[in-house]
Computed example of a mutant assay.
Amino acid sequence: MRIANFSALAAISIVILINLEMENFRLNVIRICGELFLIILASVISSNSTGMAFIVSIILIISSRNINFETVLKGFLFFSIVVFLLGLLLNYCGILPSMIRIEGLRLRNSLGFSYVSFPSQVLFYILAAWVVWRKEKISYIELAILGIFTIEIYEKTRTTSPFVLSVLLIGYVLLLKIFNLSSIITRFKLTRILSSLTFPIAFFSLLWLMFKAPSSIFQKVDQMVNNRLSLSLNGIKEFGSSLLGKKAVFSGYDAFGGSLNYNFVDSSYIQSLILNGWLFTIIIIFLFTVVCVKAVREKQEYLIVVLIIISIHSMFDPQLMLLWYSPFPFLLGKTFNKDFWNEIFRLEKE
């Protein structure tokens, strides 16, 4: 049955992809092969994670190649903000219950979401999408509102990573506005190179911290990220990593905030290595790198700073490829558009 489902899905995908290309009166064999390869790969490894939802996510990403990203951002922001605010309101009215956790000196409240970190993660991606959508038009009032929400949600959830990165992002945008700067990162050659490679740098930095860093550095970083570095290392030791990944059952907290054997791997990169394998993980990092290269060459300052923040965020949080949290995986769909590569080569010549 599984083979039949995958075969049917592959056949449907072929028809969709060919029809999309025929609309442009051109068949690009290399691009279609790349799209089919990624869809088939997703189908093979889908049972390791979210099943059909994983395959659909990949198809949606590829299918979005001709959709303006600003349209994606507007749709994402509308629905995410409505769900976020409605959730908070229903929780305030006592309709949606909260998970309450006490971790040392931290009292954490999920504010109606199913886990204590979720409202912070949703708000983090709302902020990132808002900055990329508004760019230099973003006002001090907008930044103040986003900043107040960020602080208030942190006070309730005590989720460190999205809070710190959100503050850095707001601070960077403020710096650009206060000094009337159009760019900082994309102005200098070294920062342009580092920004283009932000995803591989983040990925290999994480591997270095896990396997090569002195124990003193490992312990300090692990403490800063609430033991998530240890959980990533333990996850690799327990489940291993392979070319095509494997099924792994992570034990998280239940609805009451308890767990008999917590072993959830929060890192997007390490979780992908375990569940999706090296092949898929390297492809995704490569595609994000290509997107970063184009953003840097086009001097899209706001997009590139958000991508840098997301690459760091993904070292210790699992939302990198989750479309129900983030609209930024849709940028990968642009790499399957012939105009994307034409623009990159044109920029290279210039």
Rank of each mutant, 00 (worst) to 15 (best):
S215L: 14
S215C: 10
S216T: 11
I217P: 02
F218C: 04
Q219G: 12
Q219W: 14
K220D: 07
K220M: 09
D222C: 14
D222L: 11
Q223T: 11
N226Y: 15
N227E: 13
N227V: 08
R228Q: 06
R228T: 03
L229P: 02
L229H: 02
S230R: 09
L231C: 00
L231V: 00
S232I: 06
L233A: 01
G235C: 03
I236T: 03
F239K: 11
G240P: 02
G240Q: 04
S241M: 13
S241I: 10
S241H: 11
S241T: 10
L243M: 15
L243I: 15
L243N: 15
G245N: 07
A248I: 01
A248E: 04
V249R: 13
V249Y: 14
V249Q: 13
F250Q: 07
S251E: 13
G252K: 12
Y253P: 08
Y253R: 09
D254T: 11
D254C: 09
A255Q: 10
F256N: 14
F256I: 10
G257A: 09
G258V: 12
G258A: 10
S259E: 01
S259N: 02
L260E: 07
N263L: 05
N263Y: 09
V265Q: 05
V265L: 04
I270P: 00
Q271T: 12
Q271D: 15
S272Y: 01
L273N: 01
I274Q: 11
N276Q: 12
N276P: 00
N276M: 12
G277I: 01
G277V: 00
L279Y: 06
I283W: 12
L287C: 08
T289M: 10
C292M: 09
K294V: 13
A295F: 11
V296N: 07
R297E: 13
K299M: 01
K299I: 01
K299Y: 07
Q300L: 14
Q300K: 15
Q300V: 08
Y302D: 10
Y302M: 10
L303D: 12
L303R: 14
V306Y: 03
L307H: 02
I309T: 07
I310S: 03
I310R: 00
S311K: 01
S311M: 05
H313Q: 15
M315I: 09
M315R: 06
M315N: 07
D317M: 15
D317K: 11
P318T: 00
L320I: 00
L322Y: 11
L323M: 07
L323I: 06
W324T: 01
W324P: 00
W324R: 04
